[in-house]
Structures are given as C-alpha cells and as structure tokens.
C-alpha cells in the first residue's frame, strides 16, 4: 500500500509557543489511523496542519506523493482532504442542503448519495443547520466533507459531546465508510470506539509522537501512561 498522506517532521507554532515538535505520520490508502493523546497534546493542531489551515515552521505535508505544504487549505481540500472539524462547525444560517451543496465537488459522492447515507439529512433538508441537534450536525459535518469527494477523511473528535445512542450511529457510519475503502485519520479519546476501527495508532505527547503501532500492540501500560485511562 502506498502512503496517501505523509506528514514529515512537522514543526508548528501557535504564536510564540511551539505546538508540534517534529511530528511524522503516514496514512496509507484504505487505512484508518487513530491519532490519540490527552487534551492539548497536538492532535487538532496536526489535523489542521495536514489540511493546510495552519502554517508550518518546518516540515512537509504530502498527499499521494505530491508536496502540498505551501498550498492554501481550499486547494488541499480539492485534492482530497475532507475535514470534519472538532465541534462540527456547520454553517448555522444555511440550510442543510445549502451546507452540503456548498462543498460539492465532482465525484461519486453526490447530494443524493449523501442523503441516502444519512437519511436524517434528507428529512431535515430545508432546516437551518443551526437548529439541528448535535448528532444531526455531526452527520451534516461528515456529509459536507463527503460532498468534497475526499480521498482521506479527517475526523476530529467526531462523537464528542453526543448521546451514546447517537455516538453508536456515527461510529456505524464511519465503519461503513471504511468498509467502502475510504482512508481515515481519526482523532478521539474513547478507545473502546476508535480501536476496533483503527489499523494503526499514533499517540502524541507534548507535541511529539510518543508511540505508534498496531491497535493490538497498545498495552494497558501505554494507555495509562499516555492516555490516562
């Protein structure tokens, strides 16, 4: 399998303070990579940097072998990076359909297919996104990313703050996406939900990759040390 996304030696700053210290990781075609770590360890910064929403001080971002380090975020999205941001961040004053068609790019994921994938989005088509429940907004955020016809879906805390029944629904949807061959980079703190899906795990600690390996190699000692569980 070839590397779809390659982050190489990322050094990223938030103002004067350094957030990432040489982070490197890879997501291969069809693979689901879990990016883990406690709060403030650099997970969201890594995702935002991969999507070219944050500038790099040093390092390289490659997508399917192409250097996208200096590209603006909209070009990175068009090349296949589909971001589902933390906190959903739907366009609240726009309807569900407007949120979806705003992101539309040519490819197999059409409005009809996204609405069939999440029937709730079809039922709420003309409702303003700001009036949806948290779970529905999450479906909309995933649906919106799918409308860009991504090669890699980056999900930052996809189920944070949602009711258990809705979390299950969202994880079922993500599992279906993986089974359809979509590559995934997942950030989540709930190991019981993320590990069954992950092919590879990366743990961040204070802006550095502290450990990486297969999910079966993740011992209780490691989770206690780095994830506090």
């Amino acid at each position: 399998m070839t590397a779809l996304l390659e982050l190489d030696n990322l050094h990223v700053f938030h103002g004067a303070s350094q957030a990432l210290f040489g982070v490197s990781l890879q997501v291969r075609e069809g693979q689901a990579v879990a990016l883990m770590g406690r709060n403030g360890m650099g997970k969201s910064t890594t995702i935002a940097t991969a999507c070219r929403m944050l500038p790099l001080r040093a390092g390289t971002v490659r997508l399917a072998g192409r250097d996208i380090t200096t590209l603006p975020s909209y070009r990175a999205a068009r090349l296949g990076l589909g971001l589902v941001p933390e906190g959903r961040r739907c366009f609240a004053p726009l309807t569900v359909t407007e949120n979806l068609i705003a992101a539309a790019r040519p490819g197999p994921w059409t409005l009809a297919r996204v609405q069939a994938f999440f029937p709730r989005l079809s039922e709420r088509a003309r409702q303003l996104a700001g009036t949806l429940s948290g779970g529905e907004q999450q479906m909309l955020a995933i649906g919106r990313a799918l409308m860009t016809n991504p090669r890699l879906l980056l999900l930052d805390e996809a189920t944070e703050g949602l009711a258990p029944v809705i979390r299950t629904e969202i994880w079922t949807a993500i599992t279906r996406l993986k089974s359809e061959g979509l590559s995934l980079l997942l950030v989540d703190k709930t190991l019981s939900e993320i590990l069954p899906l992950a092919d590879h795990c990366v743990i961040l600690e204070r802006g550095k990759v502290a450990w990486q390996g297969g999910p079966t190699a993740l011992t209780p000692d490691l989770t206690t040390t780095y994830l506090g569980v």
Binding site: M53, S73, A77, R78, E98
Partner: peptide, 25 residues
C-alpha cells in the same frame, strides 16, 4: 439556489471554514 450561492453564503459566514471544504473565498 446553486452551489455558487451556497458557497458565497458559506464564505460570508466563515471564510476559513469554507476554505476547509474546498471553496476558494
């Protein structure tokens, strides 16, 4: 009603967020 209008309204709401889904503000 077209993608153009939806993208334009998305940019008005938040240009950075719009750029993250492939819209050139």
């Amino acid at each position: 009603a077209a993608r153009f209008g939806a993208a334009l309204m998305a940019i008005r709401q938040n240009p950075d967020r719009a750029a993250a889904i492939g819209i050139s503000p």
